[in-house]
Design a binder for these strands. Structure first.
Lengths: 202, 202
DNA sequence: ACCTACCATATAACTGGTTATTTAGTGCAA
DNA sequence: TTGCACTAAATAACCAGTTATATGGTAGGT
């Protein structure tokens, strides 16, 4: 995770970009855009600061690149299946437990960057795909029609990240059992929200 | 909301502190701690910057004071009743729609200040009171025992703020009708989560 | 194989504007 | 005249971004 980032023996622009993205991910997740320090990224990436400007353009643009890379990673690693929203919530919960800094990163983006209109690459398309497949599942009576597809999506996301948002104090000090219990609660909550009511199935 | 803050004719330290807290609330909600600028607070509060240091101590301590004041306000304005969690979620939703900057403020606190151990005055006590009264309601079979009191609380909070977290883009452009629909969805979601299941009531 | 000119990669030092915080004081009111 | 509210100006550190320079790999000529 936070091993020192080592340079390859040969010069390699791609590898340097990757180190800068990795160091930027950690720095931005910890301190946000305004709080991030170029010299810390420089040191952590084991690369010169001027390369940030030649490869990415500016601090803000490095943040955008960091977001793009990590959004792509989440979309890749947490598959979405509209017929199993509780399972999706559980997998998302697992991912956030394993990568709490990425939730912080997304939050910083919302606070500091969303109003600039710069959205992470692929995010909007992915959300549209998800809500549309939720709509299809609703039409097929496989999940409740009591909420709009956007509601279902927003609630699922909110429940999966509820615990990380709610407990800023001592978030890491959780036993395996406690973690399992919370995961089950999230899955069960999404199940209660999304299973069709009796009237809907009749 | 953002009228220029005017000074009284006579010198009045309390009034100046109040202006600094108000200006600080808006500045910190907009930019966070690292992004906030003392000179903007000074200008918006119509007060000299040195007063910030003599009354509050530092930029960080001004932020803490701002948090304390606004947490007190929320606790005061959004009454909690464990027997009506859906209603509580609805009122919280209303409050957040009316004061979106306070959700931002709380989020900045989580990101920038929570790990310092400085909690807003009264928050921990209030959360304990809420979870304990949820536990009593569960014991009295008035709400589901399928979740721990902490789960119930975290989920309720998450659902009430789900929409604000989920839609950073064009959050203000919502018609009255759309807002009502979202509110209803939140209330219904909390109702589905918290009403006892058939087995529980039998 | 060897040379060499070229260019992308990389670096250290610098610049100029910004920013939190302090200081030394002014003036009002009791 | 004492203490408090308030102010303007100074200070010292900080920090994003730039520049001038060095270095290593390599394509192409001999």
């Amino acid at each position: 995770m936070s091993q020192p980032l080592t340079r390859p023996k040969v010069r390699d622009a791609e590898a340097t970009k990757a180190r800068l993205l990795q160091a930027g991910t950690e720095e931005f997740a910890a301190h946000g855009i305004a709080g991030a320090r170029i010299d810390r990224i420089e040191a952590a990436a084991n690369a010169n600061r001027a390369l940030i400007y030649s490869y990415f353009g500016s601090k803000d643009q490095l943040f955008d690149a960091v977001m793009d890379a990590n959004v792509a990673r989440v979309l890749d690693e947490v598959p979405f299946k509209p017929e199993d929203l509780p399972g999706y919530a559980g997998r998302l919960f697992d991912f956030l437990v394993a990568n709490p800094h990425l939730l912080r990163l997304a939050t910083w983006h919302r606070l500091e960057r969303a109003d600039t209109g710069h959205e992470p690459q692929g995010l909007r398309a992915s959300v549209r795909m998800k809500t549309e497949s939720i709509a299809r599942a609703q039409a097929g009576r496989r999940l409740t029609s009591g909420f709009t597809p956007e509601d279902v999506y927003a609630f699922t996301m909110a429940l999966a990240s509820a615990w990380m948002e709610a407990s800023p104090y001592a978030p890491a000090a959780l036993s395996e059992d406690q973690l399992d219990a919370r995961r089950s609660a999230v899955v069960e909550a999404v199940r209660r929200l999304t299973t069709p009511t009796k009237e809907e199935t009749s």
